[in-house]
Amino acid sequence: MTKVVFYSLVAVGLFTIGFYTLLVEVHLLRKIMALNIVFTSVFLLLIAIAARYPQAIDPLPHAFVLIGILIAVSATALALRLARRIYQETGQTDLSEKQETGIS
């Protein structure tokens, strides 16, 4: 098994874990962490793909990963802030619809 295949398989495994957690867990913090795991798995796959030719490393996927990390970080920051606001407003740490009244 080459390194590329190994890391790709790890990436797929991580993606599955993240996706499963995102679906199953209700706590917002866990959902946000799951989303980060999903993003990390994609980054890992990109890094693995960058090394697909044994002669040289392809730099372009590395640039993709850098930008991807930027996006993941800023999105996580926004998500954490939102989760805090939701907790302040409703006292809930999930998105259940106790509070949901609709616009009447």
């Binding site: 996706f19 917002l28 999903v38 998500a79 939102l82 939701i86 407003e89 409703t90 009244t101």
Partner: peptide, 16 residues
């Protein structure tokens, strides 16, 4: 509160 929850749901779905 309902808008915050809606935006959180949208954020999770859209980022995924």
């Amino acid at each position: 509160a309902i808008a915050l929850q809606a935006s959180m749901r949208y954020l999770l779905v859209a980022l995924f």
